[in-house]
């Protein structure tokens, strides 16, 4: 059954949705029945602007999500090495679970 079990993270960023670019401040992550991707279960992420309640949604297979985790980490590691050290100190939001 669909559940209300979600992970949430406070984020700082932008996403391009139906009305163009918008700020997003929350990510809601859950593994459950997707709306669109032809799978029984998927890793779903909603990037949400909590003020307007608009979202940009993605639905990924579990393997795709795991690969994405690795590639995001690789991209950050490479980017930080090229761009002279960690950028975390510049980040307006220290990412953490809500």
């Amino acid at each position: 059954m669909c559940s209300y079990i979600t992970e949430k993270a406070q984020i700082f960023g932008s996403a391009k949705g139906k009305k163009g670019w918008m700020a997003v401040d929350t990510a809601v992550i859950y593994y459950d029945h997707p709306v669109h991707v032809p799978l029984d279960h998927a890793l779903n992420i909603d990037f949400v602007d909590s003020r307007s309640k608009e979202r940009v949604a993605v639905e990924l297979s579990a393997a795709s999500a795991r690969e994405l985790i690795k590639r995001i980490q690789a991209a950050l590691d490479h980017g930080e090495s090229v761009h002279l050290g960690s950028t975390e100190a510049q980040d307006p939001v220290r990412i953490h679970a809500l």
Partner: peptide, 13 residues
């Protein structure tokens, strides 16, 4: 409906 459903899921239904 799917946007509202996602919002309600995040709110615990």
């Amino acid at each position: 409906p799917d946007d509202i459903g996602a919002r309600m899921r995040a709110a615990g239904g």
